[in-house]
Amino acid sequence: MTIDVLERNNVKVMGTGSKTIVFAHGFGCDQDMWRYMVPSFVDNYRIVLFDYVGSGKSQIHNYDSQKYNDLQGYAQDVLDVMETLDLRDAIFVGHSVSSMIGMLASIRDSKYFERIVMLGPSPRYVNDLPDYYGGFDKRDIEELLTMMEMNFIGWASYLAPIVMQNNERKELSEELEKSFCSRDPHIARQFAEVTFFSDCRVSLQQASVPTLILQCTDDSIAPIEVGHYLHAHLKNSVLRQMTATGHYPHLSQPEETSQMIKEYLTSV
């Protein structure tokens, strides 16, 4: 059976610019999370939005637990979308785990990528002390995964405000909680496990595409140490510290996020 990639990943294309920007959402989210950013780029770029299988309006019947038990399965989907659209030298903007998914895809086939923008990235969420601080002990992740199994709704309401920050803007964490809850619990749990136990540190030395690392302030998922580690180990990388707090600056501070990306794209 031939799979329609554009339907499988609910691909949307807009704008008419000569350069293409591919926006890739993070765990527990979908392409709608980019809605505050798209207007800043649509007049000058061709925009590609998509949902990973199991997220948003993707075709959930195409979910393969064996394929998606590794970030490489998601990287393959990114390459499928880019190949189907016949993209070359695109700008890939990945939030959170999508930063590493995009990097892995670029290592496999760099012709699709001109630059990568990593928004709140982490190559490894679990601490590997004394040499590496990722922000989480293994036990923390295991407890989070257990909570997802035992009480999925409770997990979502617990985690959303912690990772969103911006406590004075309750509507942001409410939107994130709603997004978490709209996922299939079994798929969400597997994606969480694959994400939080992934280790892309070895792959960093293989990456060659110029990269912007956008580091948020008070990010409970990707602390500042992670940003510095990435910058130190990723050649052709630029690290910028944002004033935006939390892990979702494209929702909480879309203007600053868009401006920093634009400055980077016009810096050469």
Rank of each mutant, 00 (worst) to 15 (best):
Q31V: 00
Q31R: 01
Q31L: 00
D32H: 02
D32W: 00
M33W: 08
R35P: 01
R35F: 14
Y36T: 09
P39C: 02
S40F: 14
S40D: 13
D43F: 02
N44K: 11
N44Q: 11
Y45D: 09
Y45F: 14
I47P: 02
I47E: 01
I47A: 03
V48C: 07
L49A: 06
V53R: 13
S55G: 11
S55A: 15
G56D: 07
K57V: 12
I60A: 10
I60P: 00
H61C: 03
H61T: 10
N62A: 07
N62E: 13
Y63N: 08
D64E: 03
D64S: 02
S65P: 07
N69P: 02
D70E: 12
L71W: 09
Q72S: 10
Y74T: 08
Q76L: 10
Q76W: 03
D77F: 01
V78R: 04
L79T: 10
D80E: 15
D80Q: 15
D80C: 12
D86L: 14
L87E: 13
L87F: 05
L87P: 03
R88H: 11
R88L: 00
R88T: 10
D89K: 15
D89A: 15
A90I: 04
A90C: 11
I91W: 05
F92C: 04
F92V: 07
V93G: 08
V93K: 08
V93Q: 09
H95M: 06
H95D: 04
H95F: 02
V97K: 06
S99N: 10
M100H: 05
M100E: 11
I101T: 12
M103I: 14
L104A: 09
S106C: 07
S106Q: 09
I107E: 04
R108Y: 03
D109P: 00
D109M: 00
S110H: 06
K111P: 01
K111R: 15
E114S: 14
E114F: 02
I116G: 01
V117Y: 08
V117P: 07
M118H: 00
P121F: 04
P121R: 05
P121M: 01
P123N: 03
Y125A: 07
N127E: 05
D128Q: 13
L129Q: 13
P130N: 00
G134V: 01
D140Q: 04
I141M: 08
I141T: 05
I141N: 03
E142W: 03
E143N: 14
E143R: 13
L145A: 15
L145H: 08
T146K: 15
M148E: 10
M148K: 08
E149Q: 13
N151C: 00
N151H: 05
I153T: 09
G154A: 02
W155V: 04
W155N: 06
W155L: 02
Y158P: 04
Y158R: 14
L159A: 12
L159K: 08
A160N: 09
V163R: 01
M164A: 12
M164C: 12
Q165T: 04
Q165F: 02
N166L: 00
N167L: 08
K170V: 09
